Structures are given as C-alpha cells and as structure tokens.
Simulated scan of single mutants.
Amino acid sequence: MKKTTLITMSLITMIMLGSVYTWSVFRIPVESFYEINTFMSGLPYMVSLWFYALSMVISGRFLNLINMKKFAFIGVLLIVFGWVMAGLTTTIFGLVIMYGVFIGLGVGILYGIPIMIIQSLFNKNSGFYTGLVLAGFGLSPLVTAPIIKTLLNNVTLHQTFMLIGLLSFIILMITSTKLTSLDKSLEKDVSVGSKIKIDKVFIILYFLFLFGTTIGLMMIGLSYQVGVQYYDFSPSKVTLAMTMFALANGMSRLLFGYLSDRFNLKNIIRLAVFILFLSGIIAYINKGRFFGLYLLSFSGFWFILGAWLAIAPNAIKTIYGLNNYSKRYGVLFTAYGLGAIIGVSVSGLILDALKATQALYLIIMGISLMCLFVLGVKKFTLGL
C-alpha cells in the first residue's frame, strides 16, 4: 500500500472516530428529552471517553500488525451497534451504556491501529506523520458537528443517532478494510517484548498527560453549552465557533507532532502548559462578555488537548523505543480515561452548584502553574 493511501485512510478513520468530541452539540437536546441536569448529560460523554481509554489498554496488550484486521472489524461493529442502540434507548442510563460503553470501546480499538502503523512504518518524521493522522480526530467536529446539528434540526435526537450509526458503518468498513491490508513484507510485530517497566519518567509523563487531558476533555464537553446557556451567544454563532475549536485541535496535533521530531520534549510540554495557562486567564477575565475572547480561550483549550495527543505517542517512542510500544502507550492512555471522569464529573457538579464558569478557569490556572513548577524541578524531569 502506498504511504499516501495509508495516510488518507487513517485520516478518514480518525475523522469518524473523532465525532465523540461533538457530544456538546447533543447535550442540550439530551437534557431536554431526558429532563436531566448538566452532570447527568455529561455521563454518556464521560463514560465513552473512559471506555475509549480502557480499550486502548486492553487492545494495546495484544494488537500488532498481523492481527489488526480482526481488531478493526470488532471496533467497527461496536461503534455501529452503540450508535444504533442509542437511537432506540428511552432512558439516560441506556444512553450511557450504548453511547458510553459500546462506542467508547470501539473508538479505543480503532484509534490505536493507525497510530501503531505510523509509528512502526515511518522511521523518519514519525511525530509529524502521527500528528497529521491525529489531526483527523481533532478536526472531526469541523466536519461532523455541522452534520449532526443539521440532523438535529430536521429529525429527532434518536433518529440522528441511528443515521450517524449508518454513516459510520459505511465509511469505517471501507477505511478499516483498506487500512489493514498491508503488504506482507511490512508486517512486523512491534508489541512483543519484555514486561514494561514503570519508572519515574513515565510517572511524571503520566500525570502531566492526565492534567492536560482532564482540562481539555472537560472544556471540549462544555464548549457549546457554555457558549449558549452561560454566555447567551446564539446557537448559530457557537456552532460556527465549534468549527474553529476543531480546527485548533486538529492543527495543534500537526504542529506538536512536527515539534516533537525536532525539539526537546520538556520544552515542548512547557509550551503546551503555558498556552493552557494563558487560555485560562483569558476565559476568566472575559466572563463571556466578548465572543472573540470566548473563541480565543476555548480554542486554546481544544488546542492543548490536541497537542498532548500528539506529544504522548512520540514521547513513548522517543524515550522507550518501539519495544512494547502498544502496551506502554495503552497504559499511558489510561490517564485520558481518568481525565474524562475527573474533568466531566467535577465540571458538571461545579456548574450545577454555582451556575457560573469562573471556578473552572481558576482550577485550570492552578493546575497549569503546578505543572510548570514540576517541569522546572530538574530531579523530577530527568529523562524527559
């Protein structure tokens, strides 16, 4: 298979998988239909991200270039089943199971396949190519949010779920079949190796990744709701803003993938944390008064999540090599699942209690300063 075809199929696959980031578009219709609060409407999104991370760990222990076709087929079936059954459920807990568990598991299985292929077959500039592929996941709302919004305006919530399931089946079956049809000469197992060792460097990287993904996932899940309900911007303006957020998320993956190939890992992480800190300051000062500052600050939150998802896979390869790559990256990715649970649940409880967003921005600034402090202490970051 030509590398251009490999990149193209990977990008399309990631765009479909990244529709999980459009959950904020669903939240208001979900709250209206099921008559629930902010915390409850965040549960399907939170559970989906947790099982997404969990399946990365499980599949990472067994996934390799030889058996990936079977994993891809299972992943597609889980995603399609989740969307279709979400369209049939009549309770919020049923939606949590169908959208959260099944779609989350399927996304996690499929997500690891393009990354493993790129890291295995692209010896030069693997960070850039990984970032390029991951840009599809981040840019997904740019494509999928307008489609979902249009469907919600013309058909019911549950019909929208089922139509997305049908679209996912058609596209993912085509891309995953093509993606997993590697030449036999390229098939080499990068998962075989000794038991992975969890050292101090890995622990520091894990917690930095945890903090970055917690904030990113929290704010991505709230973007539409904050813009419409808390800041009183029109739904059409916020929908337009969502496309800009997705663009920031996608471009950051490409940019930080490129930077990961060329610069010191610690300095790249410092840059990501500093941008997050600035975004928190802008959001806190703005208080929803100016649409432009809302656009700038939330673009920063989306940007940093994309940055971390480009930094993480290349950091694992740079520090530890390809031996046990899938296993080690799977363990690191549990931080993403924890970030989903912590970020979505805490933000939901805060917003339900305070009916204001300022506390969230203070938390973001506090975590950012703590991360910058850790990165400044040499004994904590030797090896990064």
Results as ranks from 00 to 15, higher is better:
His158Gly: 07
Gly383Pro: 07
Ser59Pro: 00
Ser347Phe: 02
Cys371Gln: 14
Leu77Tyr: 06
Phe256Ala: 10
Ile316Thr: 06
Asp189Lys: 05
Leu166Asn: 08
Thr13Cys: 08
Lys195Thr: 12
Asn323Gly: 01
Ile109Tyr: 01
Phe303Cys: 10
Ser120Asn: 11
Asn123Thr: 12
Tyr129Val: 06
Thr381Asp: 11
Ser368His: 02
Asp183Ile: 10
Ile203Gly: 00
Phe128Val: 00
Val25Ala: 09
Asn324Arg: 15
Gly108Glu: 08
Leu278Asn: 01
Ser347Ala: 13
Val377Asp: 02
Met162Ala: 06
Leu54Tyr: 07
Ser24Met: 11
Gly288His: 03
Ile171Asp: 04
Thr239Cys: 00
Leu305Tyr: 14
Leu63Tyr: 00
Ile7Phe: 06
Leu78Ser: 14
Glu35Arg: 06
Asn64Pro: 12
Lys188Leu: 08
Leu278Lys: 02
Gly82Tyr: 02
Asn125Met: 04
Gly337Phe: 06
Glu31Ala: 14
Gly376Pro: 05
Met218Leu: 15
Val201His: 06
Tyr206Phe: 15
Tyr336Val: 09
Leu354Asp: 01
Ser181Met: 04
Val30Asn: 10
Gly337Ile: 05
Ile304Cys: 14
Phe102Ala: 07
Ile58Trp: 09
Ser41Arg: 08
Val101Gln: 04
Phe39Ser: 14
Gly131Val: 00
Val47Ala: 11
Phe380Tyr: 15
Cys371Ile: 07
Ser140Asn: 11
Gln119Thr: 14
Trp50Tyr: 15
Ser10Asp: 12
Ala312Pro: 00
Gly112His: 05
Ser10Ala: 15
Asn264His: 05
Thr90Gln: 12
Met98Ala: 11
Met251Ser: 11
Ile7Gly: 00
Met68Asp: 13
